[in-house]
Nucleic acid binder design. Structure first.
Length: 638
DNA sequence: CTAGGGTTAG
């Protein structure tokens, strides 16, 4: 056998081996000569032909041959692309056999491979045992920790890396930033980033924007965004997402406009955030326009889920349904969104039917799915089913009931009139009841006029959240409903004493791509006079049908007729009248408001819906009200 | 060889 020069073999000089020795005893084996073996292996790697490359590699292994690091890295890429975990491990074993320790470069590739396969422990042990770690080694591990939400380990690694004199780069910072779960850490990191001059890196910038926004620091996020000189689509997506996720739909949409003006084309992540902004603002028509653009990315799961949610939250279940049925791929979120959406909009039976379908489909329900199911039961008054799911959720679905689940069951019991049982359930809760829990009970007390329990619940809420205007108002209304005027006065007094002010009621309605806002005590709407005139005409006709304004919901110190006049200024009434005036006959009037709907407006909407033969949808911060033919989908419980 | 943006409840 002829000795072949190593340089021609594309073999690294490591591990040191002698070709003549490794080949001599294999002369009888019917395998091609080493040069062909390595060449073939190389070829298969570059062709991404994993099965053949693996066979070639095994043949090489029998001859003690190794290839170039770059070739191995190609092979690993191939394993990663095919998620071939076992093959990846074989390659690792091959390269690391005979006690050879590859260079940092190649080791990093294997660390990265294990990380991508989700085998963090294997990655960790390789990392721990490697003799020399560079920035890439550290960054790979930090990124893995951040992804695994091992925030503490990610931050700790940054410190350790600095101690080893490895200089973090923009890769490192953008990875470690995602592990910042406290403002204090973030500020520290931000300072270091400025110091090393990496603040203007687009990756670092988008990570900074994102983390500030996740910590609710929108002001800082916007500041970092505005300092940007050369744009990048992801940075735009980050800032739009920041506002959308923090419920500032207006600003998100503004930024979206600016982005288009700057010449960037929206893609999946952008549209997802824009849809969320529409969801927040209940802008169905704008959402529909976004849908048209989203069709281009037809099978993007996240985008479709966002579409689903937008249609549900805007109260158009027909649209949501058609998106849902057209979706090829559905995940837990798709099902949960649809179930909760149906339930919230009053289609409880459909929600429960969908849940059955979901179980058949093989998608495992999660914490949030069960919330939707319980909500549906509560809404439909299915006390037994709801209680059954609640009692058995751990056993059936492996999910421990959390605060929110208790909340649904309190609601369920409350709706069924079992207010005392609801109160007892709170005492038995495994997790600490919070203000929301008590508020749910307070809501039940309002409907069933259980004044004493209401006072107790309100006291609990105000202990945790002393400036919660909603609680004062709810309590005041409950007292007013029972004609307990002294208590009403007492509540108002303590409210004043604490300086708690009621946020002005505000209703929004979308007409002709314009958002019209009606704010309590604000008459700046250009058509306000006409609206008021139509409103009083409408009220006269309604009173002819037997409508009696329920002045119990008036909070100010007013007398007689003044009280009724004050009711007329409720923003949702103005929005309803404006909607009827502006939207052609037969079109649904959709309104979003910032406060819970009051009892008088609720009755008003029911009657108007009947008299004008209109569907009116009002979304308050908690519940959906579909008024049609004199009834409301909430079943008069909210 | 290492990095950034999007979806369900509250």
């Amino acid at each position: 056998m002829r000795a072949i020069p190593i340089s021609k073999l594309k073999c690294k000089a490591w591990p040191p081996f002698s070709l003549s020795r490794s080949c001599s005893h294999m002369a009888s084996v019917a395998e091609p000569p080493p040069s062909t073996l390595v060449d073939e292996f190389t070829k298969f790697c570059y062709q991404r032909d994993l099965p053949r490359a693996m066979t070639a590699m095994e043949a090489m292994q029998r001859r003690g041959l190794w290839a170039d690091s770059l070739v191995y890295s190609e092979l690993v890429k191939c394993c990663l692309a095919r998620r071939a975990v076992q093959q990846g491990k074989l390659v690792h074993k091959h390269v690391f056999s005979n006690g050879y320790r590859p260079k940092t470069f190649l080791t990093n590739i294997f660390i990265n491979m294990y990380v991508k396969f989700g085998l963090l422990e294997e990655a960790q042990s390789l990392f721990d045992e490697m003799p020399e770690r560079n920035v890439v080694s550290w960054t790979t591990m930090i990124s893995a920790y951040s992804n695994a939400k091992l925030n503490h380990k990610a931050l700790e690694s940054l410190v350790l890396m600095l101690r080893e004199d490895a200089m973090p780069n923009s890769f490192t910072y953008s990875s470690v930033l995602r592990a910042c779960d406290g403002l204090w850490y973030l500020k520290q990191l931000h300072c270091s980033i400025i110091k090393v001059g990496l603040e203007s890196d687009v990756f670092v910038r988008s990570a900074l924007i994102d983390v500030y926004s996740k910590l609710g620091e929108l002001h800082n996020a916007l500041g970092i965004f505005n300092e940007m000189v050369t744009g990048d689509l992801v940075v735009w997506n980050s800032i739009i997402g920041a506002f959308a996720q923090n419920s500032d739909g207006d600003e998100a949409l503004n930024l979206f406009k600016r982005m288009k003006g700057a010449g960037f084309a929206a893609e999946e992540a952008t549209l997802t955030s824009v849809l969320r902004a529409c969801t927040v603002l209940a802008l169905l028509e704008l959402g529909r326009q976004v849908h048209v653009h989203a069709v281009k990315y037809g099978q993007d799961l996240i985008l479709n889920n966002a579409l689903l949610d937008m249609y549900c939250k805007c109260g158009s279940l027909e649209d949501a349904n058609s998106v849902f049925t057209r979706m090829v791929e559905k995940d837990v979120i798709s099902w949960s969104t649809m179930i909760a959406g149906l339930a919230q909009n009053g289609f409880s039976q459909e929600a429960l039917r969908l849940f059955e379908q979901m179980k058949v489909s093989g998608t495992k329900p999660n914490y949030i799915t069960i919330l939707g199911v319980l909500f549906a039961c509560s809404h439909a008054g299915l006390l037994e089913d709801g209680w059954y799911y609640f009692q058995n959720m751990k056993q059936l679905f492996g999910i421990d009931p959390g605060r929110e689940h208790y909340g649904c069951v309190i609601d369920l019991l409350g709706r069924a009139g079992k207010v005392d049982e609801a109160a007892r359930l709170i005492q038995e809760m495994e997790c600490e009841p919070d203000a929301v829990t008590w508020r749910t009970l307070l809501g039940a007390c309002r409907v069933h006029r259980n004044v004493d329990l209401a006072a107790y619940a309100a006291k609990k809420i105000l202990k945790m959240d002393p400036d919660d205007a909603g609680t004062y108002i709810l309590l005041s209304n409950i007292y007013a409903n029972s004609q307990r005027w002294e208590d009403v006065a007492e509540v108002r007094k303590s409210m004043r004493a604490r300086g708690v002010t009621k946020e002005p009621g505000c209703s929004w309605i979308e007409v002709d791509k314009q958002i019209h806002a009606f704010i309590m005590g604000d008459d700046s709407h250009p058509q306000i006079d006409e609206i008021n005139r139509q409103l009083s005409l409408l009220v006269d006709r309604l009173m002819g049908m037997g409508y009696v304004p329920d002045t119990n919901f008036v909070l100010q110190d007013l007398e007689g007729e003044q009280r009724e006049v004050s009711l007329l200024s409720h923003s949702e009434k103005l929005a309803i009248v404006f909607g009827i005036m502006s939207l052609s006959k037969g079109r649904t009037v959709r309104i979003r408001k910032n406060l819970r709907i009051c009892g008088d407006c609720h009755i008003f909407a029911k009657l108007v819906a009947k008299m004008e033969e209109r569907v009116i949808v009002i979304r308050d911060p908690i519940r959906y009200h579909h008024f049609q033919d004199g009834v409301c989908s909430c079943g008069d419980y909210w």
